[in-house]
Nucleic acid binder design. Structure first.
Lengths: 108, 108
DNA sequence: TAATATGGTTTGCATTACAAACTAGTATTA
DNA sequence: TAATACTAGTTTGTAATGCAAACCATATTA
């Protein structure tokens, strides 16, 4: 270890990592929304492999956190739920990504 | 998105990420042991900022998983717990690090 | 010897992730 | 038109988790 302090600090980042994003299921959801801008519930279910119950509850949490916007519409009389990342969500994801990248790359 | 399939696959890695390591407290522990080879309980407590109860239970889990070796000694009549990463633990950490790095860097 | 410190482990609790069960509407078949 | 099945989700129940408070054993100090 060349610079112990630096090492220390990058590890300690984890102490305050955003768990709303860190959870793998939600990290998948956020990652998809980060790149594709908009998706619906069924698409997200297929992509992530999450059960609908599980997906639904993770989405509710992300919505409560203000990270994901959820818009419900009827398309040809069947309900459809559209998902997109909010600005806050995008910023939080950027921060998460930056912190984890730093942590992972600073390790020898 | 230039290559959707590639994108898809790197996100889906998260579906099978090693949660034993992914948990931030344990990730800290593993990261320290990864670089410093050996540490004791008190040192780890100070470095990670975890409470002793919490540290103790995370260590037990890592030990059960076979990722961390725990050696208890008496040093001048006071107990001391030495921690080190097992070979399995090191390999698991390598894998985790590689997967997360890939996931994080493949995102635009 | 009572009180305090050290180095942990165990216990209890609140939170979580997850899928099964349920709801509500549409389409299809008998 | 009654019954059945499908679609698109939400709610509910439960097992597992993370966490610190409480506890335990020994050592040291007043």
């Amino acid at each position: 270890m060349q610079n112990p302090d630096k090492q220390e600090n990058t590890v300690k980042i984890l102490g305050e990592i955003d768990r709303m994003i860190h959870e793998p299921a939600r990290l998948m959801i956020m990652a998809y929304l980060y790149v594709i801008e908009s998706a619906d519930f069924v698409f997200m279910m297929r992509q992530t492999g999450l059960s609908k119950g599980n997906l639904s509850s993770h989405l509710s949490k992300l919505e409560s956190a203000g990270y994901v916007d959820i818009r419900k519409e009827f398309v040809k009389k069947i309900p459809r739920t559209f998902l997109s990342l909010s600005q806050t969500g995008r910023e939080a994801f950027d921060r998460y990504q930056q912190q984890m990248k730093l942590f992972l790359t600073e390790l020898p």
